[in-house]
Every structure is written in C-alpha cells, then in structure tokens.
C-alpha cells in the first residue's frame, strides 16, 4: 500500500510541480514584458514629438 501511494503521490507532485514551474516562468516573463513596454512608453517612442526633436537636434 505504501509503495502504491508513493507512486501516485510522486506522479501528482511531478505533474503539478511542472505546471507550477510553468506558471512562475510565465509570470516572470509577463513582468519582463511589462517592464520593457513601460520603458518604451517613458522614452516616448520613436514617433513622439520630443524624440523627433532630439533626433533632429542630434
């Protein structure tokens, strides 16, 4: 019985552990994506007036 329960427990832990790891990796990547797009917005992006002015000045 102990063997059987440990086999089932191992399988469940393995499956859920992997799913959890996927979720965490996804959250990290989402945060990175948000950070990158926030950085773009604060720069003003290539199309904004301030950027174009600074580019022309430089």
């Amino acid at each position: 019985m102990g063997y059987l329960i440990s086999a089932y427990a191992l399988s469940l832990i393995g499956g859920f552990g992997y799913a959890l790891w996927l979720t965490r990796a996804r959250q990290k990547l989402r945060r990175r994506l948000e950070a990158a797009s926030a950085a773009r917005r604060s720069d003003g992006g290539p199309g904004t007036a301030s950027n174009r002015a600074s580019a022309e000045a430089g």
């Binding site: 990547l29 990158a36 992006g45």
Partner: peptide
C-alpha cells in the same frame, strides 16, 4: 519579451 526588449534597447 525578447523582441520587445530588443526594440526598446534599439530605441
């Protein structure tokens, strides 16, 4: 993410 980061770096 890699695409976005590369773009913001280029900008």
């Amino acid at each position: 993410v890699l695409l976005q980061e590369a773009e913001s770096e280029r900008e």
